[in-house]
Design a protein around this nucleic acid. Sequence first.
RNA 1: GCGCCCGUAGCUCAACUGGAUAGAGCAACGCCCUUCUAAGGCGUAGGUUACAGGUUCGACUCCUGUCGGGCGUACCA
Length: 542
Amino acid sequence: MKEYLAEVISKSLKQFDLKEEPEIRIEAPNQPEHGDASSNVAMMLAKPLRNNPRAIAQQIVDGLEYDNKKISAVEIAGPGFINFRYSDDYLFDELRTILNDGESFGQTDANKGKKVLIEFVSANPTGPLTVGHGRNAVLGDTVARLLEWTGAEVDREYYFNDAGRQMRVLGESVRARYFELVGKDAEFPEGGYEGEYIKDIAKALQEEFGDELLSADDEQPFKEKAEEEIFADISTTLERMKIKMNSFFNEHSLYEDGKIDETIQKLRDLGLAYDEDGAVWFKTTKFGKDKDTVLVKSSGEPTYRLPDIAYHANKLDRGYDLCVDVFGADHIATYPDVLSGIKSLGYDPDKVDVVVYQFVTLVKDGKPFKMSTRKANFVTLDDLMDEVGTDVTRFFFLMRSPNTHLEFDIAQAKEAGEKNPVFYLQYAHARISSILRKVTEEYNLKGKADLSLLNHPSEITLIKTMLKFPETLANAARLREPHHVITFLNELASDFTSFYHDCRILGEDEKLAQSRMELAKATAQVLRNGLGILGISAPDQM
RNA sequence: GCGCCCGUAGCUCAACUGGAUAGAGCAACGCCCUUCUAAGGCGUAGGUUACAGGUUCGACUCCUGUCGGGCGUACCA
């Protein structure tokens, strides 16, 4: 419809002999009395045409040729807005479209045919997933779902590194606990992992091997067991979160297949990498930074930047049109260097996109505190799901813009389990299912519904809201901001509730009951589709 | 010091990226269950959008500066 209106206006603009046609944007006004769609072109043209916007608007409107089966009224309002009203027939046609499209209603094709790789979670296996990881996990998964709804083919990947110092400390921590269990003295490593799960892993080792491992030369067997157990735990958590990864990518494989060496050699050949003080440096000053950065430390160990660049090159080599990374605010600093790196290597940096979210601040007893996996003062995602369930957990992480610092009060989250806004959406769906069950019992509806019987303001508003769904999804996908979907669903549920109070279904005569039932069915469909994208269930009863 | 993000109702957050009268949910107060689920509805109260300038027909949104918070700014990941 918006495209149609833009086209109609564009034709009318031909009368003005413009050097350059302005961008015609059609927007939905906030106030219902301002119509269903609105354009500000007349105001944009005021300056070039040296005329007042209302006069221009009048000329545009006079020159409009539109289908009055779709548009019932055109008005000029305020400083020069041109407002359109949709005709009822158009709305009924669109309502039929929703019912016909069913579970695919809302799909658009902005990313049709695109192959996308989204990398998220990517927590190293040093401990269970915490609520901090939760935001990353749910955000990444939902952005993936949104991209799928705009036609993309999306793969989800988990990137991890099991070779770093933290993993070594993890192995040493398990070793120390194991020694304790078999009754030997062992010094707990400085800065070791203090969580209870370390003891569980040690116990598992003891059950499997008895005290055989006392003779182990290093922490290796302990580390391996820890990684295995922790990954199993993470997988279970992800499954509970309804997140399914397509692949797990081990950073180490980049060393094995020579990509790290290859990357650094290419950068050297380009004159972008050089040796100094025993380290290898990346000339980031060439890309506007005030300092060069280290790629390989004098110890011979690469910094994370080097594998990050190699990894992104690898992703693009796999033929993806778009690679999305989901990062917490603390990782954002690496991003420009990675882009510079892959650009130097001849890749298109526009194919890499980053979703940055701000940190989750934990609040306990009214005071913020820092989470640390090492010190074991974290709240796990599993704890959270035990407490409030998967639906509330996902909803909680999605309801706010990724850009805001999310405050997470443990006590409040528990309370929110009882009166969470997610239930408002689910409740609306359950109500419709319930009505549908009763209607099936009490009526014997046949034939096609006469949608033109829907003329109550609450019915019309409800239809109009549903029509915004595809655009809302496209928008949310483009911005990578799932919270727009929640804002929309809240509006939809609220409009349905108004309809529910104003217009009865049971007890009305058959024709009216039938058309209202169709409206309710369409609402349920849109609620299901929307909740589905969020990974939240749409129950038939509550 | 420099860079990025944020500052909106008592609290947690929206506002379709420059549009018309800044909206929801909690919390508070007052009503509404013999009628399709009260996990609901209706109403009241709550705002100088941190502050000061600027840009323009029009600013929560863009620019400059100030204040406050978070995160970076490592040969840590």
